[in-house]
Amino acid sequence: MINKNEIHFRKANAADINIIWEIIQQSIERRRIDGSAQWQNGYPNLQTVESDVSKGFGYVLTVNNEVAVFVALIFNDEPAYSTIEGEWLTTGEFVVVHRVAVSENFAGQGLAKKLFDYIEDFVKSQNVLSVKVDTNYDNIAMLKILESKGYSYCGEVVLAGGVRKAFEKVLII
Rank of each mutant, 00 (worst) to 15 (best):
K4E: 09
N5H: 01
N5S: 06
E6R: 07
I7A: 00
R10H: 01
R10S: 05
K11I: 06
K11D: 03
A12H: 08
N13A: 02
N13G: 07
A14W: 02
D16N: 14
I17T: 11
N18T: 13
I20E: 13
I20F: 14
W21R: 04
W21T: 15
E22C: 01
I23N: 06
I23K: 04
I23L: 06
I24R: 02
Q26V: 03
Q26S: 06
I28H: 04
E29A: 12
R30W: 14
R30T: 13
R31P: 00
R31Q: 15
R32W: 05
D34L: 13
G35F: 13
A37F: 05
W39A: 13
Q40L: 05
G42M: 10
Y43D: 07
Y43K: 04
P44E: 14
P44G: 10
L46R: 15
Q47R: 10
T48H: 14
V49P: 01
V49D: 04
E50I: 03
S51Y: 11
D52M: 10
D52W: 02
D52S: 07
V53C: 14
K55S: 12
F57C: 07
F57M: 05
V63G: 08
N64R: 06
N65G: 00
V67H: 08
A68P: 04
V69Q: 08
V69G: 08
V71K: 01
A72L: 03
A72C: 09
L73M: 08
I74K: 07
N76P: 02
N76H: 07
N76Q: 06
D77I: 03
E78N: 09
A80F: 05
T83M: 12
E85L: 14
E85Q: 15
E87Y: 11
W88K: 12
T90S: 12
T90P: 04
E93I: 00
E93G: 14
F94H: 11
V96C: 05
V96S: 10
V97H: 00
R99P: 04
V100I: 15
A101W: 05
A101Y: 06
S103A: 07
N105P: 06
A107G: 09
Q109K: 15
G110W: 07
A112N: 11
A112S: 15
L115F: 05
F116S: 00
Y118W: 13
E120D: 08
F122M: 14
V123L: 10
K124R: 15
S125F: 03
S125I: 06
S125D: 12
S125K: 13
Q126I: 01
N127P: 00
N127F: 06
V128D: 00
L129F: 02
L129R: 10
V131H: 00
V133C: 05
D134E: 07
D134A: 06
T135R: 03
Y137G: 09
Y137M: 03
D138N: 14
D138Y: 07
D138G: 09
N139W: 01
N139M: 02
I140S: 08
K144N: 11
I145C: 06
I145G: 07
L146A: 06
L146D: 08
E147S: 14
S148F: 06
K149E: 15
K149H: 11
G150S: 13
S152K: 15
S152W: 11
G155I: 11
E156P: 02
V157T: 15
L159Q: 13
A160S: 09
A160G: 02
A160I: 08
G162C: 05
V163S: 09
V163I: 09
R164S: 01
E168G: 01
K169T: 05
K169N: 03
I172C: 01
I173P: 01
